[in-house]
Structures are given as structure tokens and as C-alpha cells.
């Protein structure tokens, strides 16, 4: 990066350190912070959407919709995360490629499953084999967003379902007594009061989500924990910057990073909670 870094082996002390910390490999680690934050921001809308859909489905008056809601939350919550993260993205990836193969390469006669091999034609690859590495990573990231959304959506659905039930019946009866329609009751009374009951559960889920981001590596996305492990390991002279096992420092930095993230989140949730409970006597 800097001119003085051209000959790293001749450097010492702080100069060496500053050159070391600005290698392209370290830049990749700093960039992965954005990957983690990007994932956290990208998954919130689909999580909330699936959460609401699941919670409302469970309250539906139509039995099959209700079964769907209960089925979704029960199955996804029951399967261990790591199993889900190993299985689902590969299945989704193969499903997408399988469909593309059927559409684009209808003339290819060889079966897609040949023994252990899953082989689709070049045109059906997702992303295409010739695509830049960036697209491969973006595709992996998208699979990650979908998987996280489905898993955490189920937990959110359960939290929201509980919160909707926790709003005192008297509130809803009063709303009806004022002449509000079903819909008005839901949007003007039920929903605003629901948040007070949902927020503690949602803040828990958010904290768990922050700590679950290293699962990204299972999906082939290189996150900050992967880089800390990779950079911190012992480096022999074959590397330009040789050093002993420094993982303790890298994991120390990770500790600070995650604590900072959770601390900021907790403050934000405190504010949201204060706002959601304005004018309500039920929340103490």
C-alpha cells in the first residue's frame, strides 16, 4: 500500500506493523465487517415479513392457513440451525440450477444426477461459470440472506404470535365498543400495543442473529471470524509477513467488535422500547 512497505522483511517495529495491518488481506478482513453489517441490515425486512406472515397465519380463521403457520414455525424452530444451514442453501442452489437446466438446456439428454455428481449444463449454472468471482460471492450472500430470513422468521413469528395474544382483551373490546371495525381495531389498537410485548423477545432474537453471523462461513461467505482465524494463524517464512500464532489478538479484536455491536443494539432497543410504551400503563 505504502512505498515503504515494498520490502517487508527489512522492516521492524511500528513500520512493520503498519504495513502488516494494511495488506490487501487485512483489507479483506475490514471489508468483511461491511459484509456482516450488510447481512444484518438485509435480513431484517424479510425476517419481519416472514414473522408477521407466520404470526398472522397462526391466528387465521382458515384452518389450512393456520396449519401452514404452525407447521412453518414448529419445523424450522425444531431443526438445529447448523443442520438447516448446511442443508437448505445447497438444496435451494440445486433447485434453482435444476429449474434453469430444464428451461435452458431442454435438449441435453444426460441426467442431472449422475451417481454422486450434480451436473447441469454450463448455461444453467448459478451464477455462470464465467461470471466474475464477485457474482459468486453475491449469490452466496443472497442464499445466506434467504436462509437466515427463514430461520429467524420462524422465531419472530412465534414471538409476535405471543405478543399479539398478550394484549389485554379489554383493550380490543373497548375498541370495538367505540365502533371500530375489525381492521381498525387491529391497526390502531392491537398492533401498537403488541410491540411492548414483542420487543424484549425481538431484541433477544437480534442479539442471537448478531452472534449467528459467523454461520455465514458455512455458506461460503468469508466473514470476519473466518478472516480473524486465517490471519491470526501462525505464518511461516513462505508468507511475506511471518509471525507466530496471533489468534489471541485477532479474537480479542473480534470480542470488542461483537460487544460494541451488541452494546449499540441494546441502547437502540431501549429507545425503541421507551417509544413503544408511551402512554401505556401495562409496561413497567
Amino acid at each position: 500500500m505504502f512505498e515503504i512497505c515494498a520490502e517487508p522483511r527489512s522492516l521492524e517495529g511500528l513500520t512493520w506493523l503498519s504495513c502488516y495491518l494494511t495488506t490487501p488481506k487485512h483489507a479483506a478482513m475490514y471489508y468483511s465487517i461491511l459484509t456482516v453489517l450488510g447481512l444484518l441490515l438485509a435480513v431484517v425486512p424479510p425476517i419481519l415479513f416472514l414473522g408477521f406472515a407466520g404470526a398472522l397465519a397462526r391466528r387465521s380463521k382458515i384452518a389450512p392457513v393456520r396449519w401452514l403457520g404452525v407447521g412453518y414455525t414448529s419445523i424450522v424452530r425444531g431443526v438445529p440451525d447448523i443442520v438447516f444451514f448446511l442443508f437448505f442453501p445447497i438444496a435451494l442452489d440445486q433447485a434453482v440450477e435444476y429449474i434453469r437446466h430444464k428451461i435452458k438446456c431442454a435438449d441435453v439428454l444426460e441426467p442431472v444426477y449422475q451417481g454422486n455428481d450434480f451436473v447441469v449444463c454450463q448455461a444453467a449454472k448459478m451464477p455462470l461459470g464465467i461470471a466474475d468471482q464477485f457474482y459468486h460471492e453475491a449469490w452466496g450472500f443472497s442464499l445466506a440472506v434467504i436462509t437466515f430470513a427463514i430461520v429467524f422468521g420462524a422465531f419472530t413469528a412465534n414471538t409476535l404470535h405471543g405478543a399479539l395474544n398478550a394484549v389485554p382483551k379489554g383493550q380490543l373490546e373497548t375498541a370495538r365498543a367505540f365502533g371500530m371495525s375489525e381492521r381498525q381495531t387491529f391497526w390502531r389498537v392491537h398492533m401498537p400495543q403488541m410491540w411492548v410485548y414483542a420487543l424484549p423477545g425481538l431484541s433477544n432474537l437480534w442479539m442471537i442473529l448478531i452472534k449467528a453471523t459467523p454461520l455465514l462461513f458455512l455458506l461460503g461467505v468469508k466473514d470476519i471470524v473466518y478472516w480473524a482465524k486465517e490471519l491470526g494463524g501462525m505464518k511461516t517464512q513462505v508468507y511475506t509477513y511471518a509471525h507466530p500464532d496471533w489468534r489471541i489478538w485477532y479474537f480479542g479484536a473480534l470480542l470488542v467488535f461483537y460487544l460494541f455491536l451488541t452494546w449499540v443494539s441494546q441502547r437502540a432497543f431501549d429507545r425503541i422500547f421507551a417509544r413503544a410504551s408511551r402512554g401505556l400503563s401495562v409496561a413497567s
Binding site: P8, P24, K25, G129, T240
Partner: peptide, 23 residues
């Protein structure tokens, strides 16, 4: 479609294969 061949490696087994400081 050019014949793009994707070579998969571990990147953590020097000197066989590793990620250098350029990433």
C-alpha cells in the same frame, strides 16, 4: 461459454496452497 475451469483449494496448507498477503 468459454471453458472456464474453477479450481477449488483450501488455502490454508502452506507451502502446498495458502492465501498470501495480497489475499
Amino acid at each position: 461459454w468459454a471453458d472456464t475451469v474453477r479450481l477449488g483449494t483450501e488455502g490454508a496448507y502452506p507451502p502446498y496452497n495458502f492465501i498470501n498477503d495480497k489475499g
